[in-house]
Write a protein that binds this DNA or RNA. Structure first.
Lengths: 190, 190, 190, 190
DNA sequence: GATGAATGAGAGTTCATTCAT
DNA sequence: CATGAATGAACTCTCATTCAT
């Protein structure tokens, strides 16, 4: 039954995310993973045809998280939305854990990996929308297009999160972003 | 003679950097590398006691590059210096090549790796100095310390370069930084 | 099934012991060993997580051998038991083969190696028991404790077996021990 | 000049013995050894055509030591001479150091290695002579030939020293031999 | 569906020894 | 005499993946 398959898969994934967080994605060998999961390697490959599959799913989760948890909190104030977005992105990384974030931020992308940081991803579109509305409302007055603003924002946020992960989560990322993202915000407001 | 050793080492390094650029650091297996270099594995290990050594040297090169090529071009205008710094950082990555930059940006840090992105590195200190002078001259009016400004700047620049590398160098990085870094600059000017 | 695992492992071990005997333990490189075994290196490591494992097992086998084959043959005459013990020790080495014995006698002990020649090993305790009973019965009248006698005996026996192995099994070890161990026995009887 | 060559060789050897003692023979890599010696590998191979050469010389030293230091102290009492011999053998090992003794006792013998523990070696002949004289004087009354007695003695002594080395010199070897060798002596006396 | 034994190319690294300078 | 760069076969061990049961 496909339902049963999906359920089992989801249950395993949940455990896997926790493990990736604890031990890191790269360090997580399939054999060891299976041991922790209480599953045979055969079963693992039944649910996840290749290890890289796991990586791809880390990306998918972000989109889901932002669509379900963050977007609903948006207000009319697009600058506030932007700050909320930035803080949430940081919060997501913290919640995801240092190791998974490191993987999420730094893992070599496989051939088709380019897609994973594409502007077309839901999270990027959400951000673009903020700038489009903000520009329409006159909150962001700058010579860049909404898409460019969104891209710049993602670059900066990923910069923050990478730094945090590289430094092994040695400081409060959310606090960091709340303190310093306003520099970028000021530049974007124009 | 140590001179001879250093000379050979440098010659090999140059070849290696080129190879890293062409094929990626992670993809370079010692054996294959030696084959390309026309050198026995023994000889390789004679000059580079461990593979990770190569990685470390990518970092050292930046500091050298900035001290010798960039700093001398600094003027009295600290904002201009900052832009020069940003552009040079991007230029350095382009010159280093996509693959080496990816490695440079994303490689897992080894235990002592924290040092490699430390605030104490020459490049960070150079940046801090720019902000100190700029604040003294009233060019940067913001509530952050010079060190905090420097760190923010590095985070943003690394963000740009990582993005470029992740996207396989599919656009003009220097141009990108020249166009978008001003957003950050505006925020820093206050 | 664990049973299957154990069975295969035992089967491999048997072949390995034979090879160790023919070619020596130190000479057995994993790749070569696997070739002879008709097994991939992966499979080898599946059964023997590290090469040193093989060494450890040589020791375990002795204890087993003595508990199962020798002890049951003990009688009331402790001097006779001692001779039986000595002869059996020699016999065990002969059966194990020259090369394995050499390894067994001379291999560098790994960190925890001290345990392998510990007084607490079953074989040593069996020997101590002989002397305890022998002293109680008045068969051994000497100023040493049972444990000291046991240790002296082990030292001498290991001396014999090492010599035999060092000389490439060029003489009949069992005969040698039967002829010369009585010198020690006389000293122990007092 | 051959004299100069010999002198340099001897000087190096002295340092080498010390190093073998400190670090073990097997663990002593030629490169490292040369570094400690302040000599190029080329020079090393000039004096010692192969590493195994060093090992062979450990054996030669014993003979020298016994001929020059021990034999002169012999008296008319052959049992006393035997005890002196045993104690000196232990003393030699202690002085040589744990690591060198371990090597001396346990190292795999190369093809022609059999010679190194041959009955024809000076040290064995010295021992045989003790038993010959002892038997003539009626001090040793046993059914074995002098040569057999000598061999038995060497086996036992090597057993003691091996044990000591295997246990990392964790006890007083000379004391041990003085306490326990009399068991063998008693047996030899008959 | 599930198992886990088996694969095997490939990883980084070592090290006694040689030989051109 | 002395150097030390160069050799390269050999080492142990890893690990994502497959497939017969």
């Amino acid at each position: 039954m496909t339902d049963k398959y999906q359920a089992r898969r989801s249950a395993l994934l949940k455990q896997i995310y926790q493990l990736i967080d604890e031990e890191g994605y790269e360090a997580l060998r399939v054999r060891y993973l299976c041991g922790k999961l209480g599953v045979s390697t055969g079963a693992f490959y039944h649910y996840f045809p290749e290890k890289y599959e796991l990586h791809r799913m880390l990306y998918e989760r972000v989109d889901e998280y932002f669509e379900q948890r963050v977007q609903p909190c948006f207000t009319e104030d697009e600058a506030a939305n932007l700050l909320l977005f930035a803080g949430s992105y940081a919060g997501y990384c913290v919640q995801t854990g240092v190791a998974a974030t490191r993987c999420f931020m730094t893992l070599p992308l496989q051939p088709e990996g380019g897609q994973l940081i594409s502007d077309r991803r839901p999270i990027s579109q959400m951000l673009t929308a903020i700038f489009e509305r903000g520009k329409a409302k006159g909150q962001f007055v700058n010579p860049y297009s909404a898409r460019e603003c969104a891209r710049y924002t993602m670059v900066v946020l990923r910069g923050f999160c990478s730094d945090w992960a590289k430094r092994d989560g040695g400081y409060d990322l959310v606090d960091m972003v709340r303190r310093f993202f306003p520099i970028s915000l000021a530049g974007l407001r124009g």
